[in-house]
Nucleic acid binder design. Structure first.
Length: 477
DNA sequence: TGAAATGTTGGGGCG
DNA sequence: ACGCCCCAACATTTC
């Protein structure tokens, strides 16, 4: 019987794992390996929250493997060297891994492939990064035609999903594995692991869950088109960290979305289609980064590479700390730093504020997000920032400047989101919750929140910064 | 997956 | 009764 290495990178799951399935061919003994990559562990873009989530995910994966007779081998160092070592220790003949498309991952995999027989299989996305092409072979740089072509390709069905293997042969007992420290505080909002990801997907697409008594409660996915932008509701799937580390396969999510479209009523169809589009956005940005790796360094649109940024360090610090004086911005930034996650609508609002109101280089915000987000992924994060900055592919016209007060009124109508994350504003009346500087002095005093003392005055005036950014982009573009 | 400015329309108050 | 004005509501244009 041959021995194969299943090299795990961002596919921390046993269900619907094409790399694991490929490694299991020919009844091979499979050695599940994770290499703690020194290069990634040291990167400033990797923050404690994402690392803790990875750590807990590895611990959970190890437990899942043990319940099936196997175990996880953890090593630390340069992947090419560590994999070479493991091959020498085990007489393994091949390495199987899920293909990852970021520029660093591609360089890393090329250097591994130069030393050992490495087989890369799809799985990070439903469509491999270079598959969705125009009729003439060109690359889509606009989302809508990309999504049309994506949907025109054969769609996955439930029968395509690969079940988790019931039993796995154990790796040689002598193989050393680094201990996974459980000292790292795991997130209670995002418990890592495949089982939790499955539970979330089920709760999102099924009616009456997680309130079994209420059979009439529609599935969240059926309300997704309406609720996904609401900051004060739990209208999203909450799956992004799990997709980021492959604790659930993108393919399984797509299958669940397609089933909801096929089975539901009109509103369920609309919600499921909207969610499916979000999954396709994810694949779109993977494809963009694959074909245009320079976007990690510069704007996709060359004419918008010369915007005269102000890059005020003090204002950037205020944005990072959630002390800009705009409640919706501050609530979102505090949610991010405290939990490692931010609602997508809030991501757009704070990004617009940083780039358009403060005239700070979108790459500063991109880096900060990447450090703090548990779901931080270079393709999606970069795509989102370029989109908001209006310098990317499917670029929002640059004059789309979000008004933080209007956005807040629309997507957090009673201010529940603001009150949760900016407690010093909690007692202000609804009428002033999103623009507290407009509250009369006695209202501020009675609410125990005097602007300038208990909560900052706005660090910029939106009306004038709006004019300023339009001029700045005009000069550049 | 914008917001603000400007234009249009129509009802009602009023002389 | 009629014209005039005001303005809300909605539509269109502009940034």
């Amino acid at each position: 019987m041959p021995t194969h290495i299943w090299w795990i990178r961002r596919d921390l799951r046993l269900t619907d794992n094409q790399a694991l399935a490929a490694a299991l061919a020919d009844d091979a003994v499979v050695i599940p390996l994770f290499v703690l990559d020194d290069h990634l562990l040291a990167a400033p873009t990797v923050g404690a929250k994402r690392l803790a989530f990875l750590w807990q995910g590895l611990t959970t994966l190890d437990a899942d493997l043990r319940s099936r007779g196997s175990r996880l081998i953890v090593r630390r160092g340069d992947p090419a060297i560590e994999i070479g070592r493991l091959l020498a220790e085990t007489a393994a003949t091949a390495v199987y891994a899920e293909e990852d498309y970021s520029p660093y991952a591609r360089r890393r995999d090329a250097s591994v492939a130069a030393a050992v027989p490495l087989h890369l299989v799809p799985g990070v996305t439903v469509r491999p990064a270079d598959v969705v092409r125009k009729a003439d072979g060109g690359i889509y740089t606009v989302f809508t035609p990309f999504s049309r072509a994506w949907k025109a390709l054969p769609l996955p069905h439930r029968s395509d999903l690969l079940p988790a293997p019931e039993r796995l042969a154990p790796p040689p007992a002598a193989l050393v594995s680094l201990p996974l420290s459980d000292a790292i505080a795991a997130s209670s909002l995002f418990p890592a692991g495949e089982a939790e990801a499955q539970r979330r997907l089920a709760a999102f697409v099924k009616a009456g869950v997680p309130v079994p008594d209420d059979r009439n409660r529609p599935a969240p996915i059926a309300r997704y088109a309406d609720d996904r932008n609401r900051l004060d509701l739990a209208g999203t799937s909450g799956l992004s960290p799990y997709l980021r580390f492959g604790m659930i396969s993108a393919r399984e999510c797509v299958v669940a979305g397609l089933e909801a479209m096929a089975l539901g009523d009109a509103s369920a169809r609309r919600g499921a289609e909207t969610w499916l589009n979000e999954l396709i956005w994810r694949e779109f940005y993977v494809s963009i980064l694959y074909h245009f790796p320079n976007v990690l360094r510069e704007a996709f649109r060359p004419e918008l590479r010369a915007i005269p940024w102000i890059n005020d360090e003090t204002q950037f610090a205020a944005w990072c700390a959630g002390r800009t004086g705009y409640p919706i911005v501050d609530a979102a930034m505090r949610q991010l730093v405290q939990t490692g996650w931010m609602h997508n609508r809030a991501r757009m609002i704070v990004a617009s504020f940083l780039v358009k109101d403060l005239l700070i280089d979108w790459r500063w915000g991109e880096r900060f997000f990447m450090h703090h987000l548990i779901d931080g992924d270079p393709a999606a994060n970069n795509g989102g920032w370029q989109w908001t900055a209006g310098v990317g592919t499917d670029a929002a016209p640059y004059f789309r400047v979000f008004n933080p007060v209007l956005q807040a009124a629309k997507y957090d109508p009673e201010g529940a989101y603001v009150r949760r994350w900016v407690p010093e504003l909690a007692r202000l009346p609804d009428a002033f919750i999103h623009a507290p500087w407009l509250a009369p002095a006695d209202v501020q005093r009675r609410a125990g929140c005097v602007i300038g003392r208990d909560y900052p005055a706005p660090i910029v005036d939106h009306a004038s910064t709006r004019t300023r950014v339009l001029r700045a982009y005009n000069l550049a573009g």
